[in-house]
């Protein structure tokens, strides 16, 4: 594959489910591979988790730093603000 890819892996649990759903909604090119207990999400160039998208799903405030509780691994350069957490490779 010639395209530059980024990825992150999340624990397969209830805390991470709204994050996964937000990623699926906001990153149409993301591909999810399921492993026991964990899934890996690959995307070309950029992968973003938007605070608002997660908040819509959980109905309360969410801080992008809360992904520390669900994150298993990642690859890419991090771009993080109060409103989103993104991985980039260009």
């Amino acid at each position: 594959m010639s395209e530059k890819m980024v990825f992150l892996a999340l624990q397969d649990n209830e805390d991470a489910r709204p994050i996964r759903e937000a990623i699926e909604a906001d990153n149409p090119l993301a591909v999810i591979t399921q492993f026991p207990g964990v899934y890996k999400i690959d995307a070309p160039g950029r992968l973003v988790i938007n605070r608002e998208s997660v908040e819509e799903r959980i109905g309360r405030a969410w801080n992008p730093q809360d992904i520390h509780l669900s994150l298993v691994t990642l690859s890419g350069n991090i771009d993080e603000t109060e409103d989103y957490f993104a991985l980039e490779r260009t």
Partner: peptide, 22 residues
């Protein structure tokens, strides 16, 4: 290794593994 622990029914190791991995 941690996915292997999950697959092999080792709940405890999965949890320390992913806790460490975060």
């Amino acid at each position: 290794f941690m996915s292997g622990a999950a697959y092999n029914g080792d709940m405890a190791t999965v949890n320390f593994g992913f806790s460490a991995q975060s």
